[in-house]
């Protein structure tokens, strides 16, 4: 008999499905070129969150939707919360490390105006200090 052993293929395919299930929420962030600030400590472990991405040149995005400008941020966050059943979703601000703090604070205030109850600042994990 020349039957092909399909077990490895099914094995790999199932691993692929599991990886996709795990990484799908992580991949729902905007594809903007940002340099996150590095940090050693880590705090929040939420796997489902709303991301606000602030690029070095003024680009703003909520999850993977790029907005026309910062003035549209509060409305976009409000729409995102309206589309979800949970109102305690963590909002993670992913800002470029070169941005002035004023821009980040404005984004955090807009997120609060949009209904965010829990806020976090994204960092790039830098190992042990």
């Amino acid at each position: 008999m020349t039957r092909i052993n399909v077990t490895p293929i099914i094995d790999v395919a199932l691993v692929l499905v599991i990886i996709l299930l795990i990484t799908a929420p992580m991949l729902s962030v905007a594809d903007l070129d940002i340099e996150l600030p590095q940090a050693h400590a880590r705090d929040t472990e939420d796997t489902v969150f709303v991301s606000i991405t602030l690029g070095a040149h003024g680009e703003v995005a909520v999850d993977d939707h790029v907005l026309s400008g910062p003035q549209a941020l509060a409305a976009a966050v409000r729409d995102r919360f309206a589309a979800d059943d949970r109102d305690d979703l963590l909002v993670v601000v992913r800002a470029d490390s070169r941005l002035p703090h004023a821009a980040v604070r404005a984004a955090m205030n807009a997120a609060r105006d949009g209904g965010a109850l829990r806020l976090a600042v994204a960092t790039r994990q830098g190992g042990q200090p």
């Binding site: 692929l16 990886i19 996709l20 990484t23 992580m26 991949l27 962030v29 996150l36 940090a39 400590a41 880590r42 705090d43 929040t44 963590l90 993670v92 992913r94 955090m108 609060r112 829990r118 806020l119 976090a120 600042v121 994204a122 960092t123 790039r124 994990q125």
Partner: peptide, 18 residues
Amino acid sequence: ILLLATPLAFESSFAVRR
């Protein structure tokens, strides 16, 4: 998929209060 997800896996965040 691993190439795409690896940089995101090294992201973390600090919670900040109101």
